[in-house]
Amino acid sequence: MLNKLALIAGAAFVATTIGAATAQADPSMTFGVTVWTAATPNAQIGDANQQALPTNTIIGSNNLMATATYTGMPNWFDGTQSSNTFAGFTNNGAGFSDITYFNGGSGNSVLSTSGFGSVALFELTFTTNHAFSGTVTHDDGFSLYNAANTMTLVNSSYPTTATPTNFSVTPGTYNIWYLEANGAPAALQFSNVNVPEPGSFALLGTGLVGLGLLLRRRKRA
């Protein structure tokens, strides 16, 4: 009877540990943010200056609008076609620090205009010590690269309607590229971010070993 009770307790422990190992949490991420804006008259959707890529041709000191640090997971949205400003898109700069503006930029800088007449390109650089995955809904283009911008992990770089895109990363440093084109709505929103709880996998291993020993003892009896 005691062995049976121990077996049940061991199974319950493992089940609880598995639940902890797959717990969801929003990581406290810190991003280095760089923003470029430029007029792109007569542009078409497939042009190089309309792509969320590190090869976008608007990248350069003359088009640099802002640099900043952002803490949290981006949940940025602006549905106002008439304004579509940096402040409106980023929740009035909530979560930002160390913002520096260039070339006359400000929170009132317009990100894009209809007809692909102007665009804004965001680069968000981050380092993570944990593997995690999730979904990003973006309007317009989104891509995910390694730190050196030599390996594409996710490529949804063309301007789109609001599109949910899944991503997954291992520990390391990465660059997110986001492009806002053709006027609002603008969206860069992370959801379903899944991060293993620290130490839970070690507990899972301990629980499985303990359950194995109990099963072995019961078999001998």
Rank of each mutant, 00 (worst) to 15 (best):
G117I: 00
I58L: 04
V154R: 10
S109D: 08
L213M: 15
M1H: 08
K4A: 08
D98S: 04
F89N: 07
G183P: 02
L144A: 02
T100E: 12
T34S: 08
A187K: 15
V154D: 06
I8W: 05
A147C: 02
A221F: 13
N3C: 04
N108P: 03
N166I: 03
G104P: 13
G95R: 00
F77P: 00
T165V: 15
S61H: 03
T85K: 12
N129W: 00
D139E: 15
S168N: 12
I45Y: 11
S200R: 13
L153W: 04
T113V: 06
F132P: 02
G93S: 02
V209M: 15
F102H: 14
S118W: 01
P198M: 10
N155I: 05
T71A: 01
A23Y: 12
P164L: 06
S109P: 05
T127I: 05
V193P: 09
T30Q: 14
P185I: 11
D140G: 01
D47W: 11
Y174P: 01
G212H: 08
W36N: 04
E197L: 15
A162H: 04
G183Y: 08
M1V: 08
N194E: 08
T90P: 04
T90F: 00
A9K: 10
T135M: 07
A23H: 09
T150L: 09
G95H: 07
Y178V: 11
Q51G: 06
L179M: 11
K4M: 03
S114Q: 11
N175R: 12
D47P: 06
Y101I: 08
T34G: 00
L203N: 15
E197R: 15
S112K: 09
P74K: 02
I99R: 00
F201H: 15
N108H: 06
P54M: 07
T161Q: 10
A120Y: 05
Q50S: 09
N62R: 07
P54G: 08
N75S: 12
Y70T: 03
G32E: 12
S156G: 04
F116L: 13
Y158E: 06
S157P: 02
D98F: 01
L53E: 13
S143N: 08
Y178Q: 03
Y145M: 09
T127K: 08
T67M: 04
P54S: 10
G19Q: 10
P74L: 09
V119Y: 03
I8M: 10
L5K: 14
G199I: 14
E197P: 02
V136I: 04
T137H: 02
Q189F: 14
Y174C: 03
L214A: 13
A162T: 11
A94R: 01
A162C: 02
E180W: 06
P164M: 02
F102N: 07
W36D: 00
T127H: 06
G141N: 09
L213Q: 13
V14R: 06
I8T: 12
G172V: 06
H138I: 04
F31H: 00
G210W: 13
V35W: 00
A184V: 10
T125Q: 13
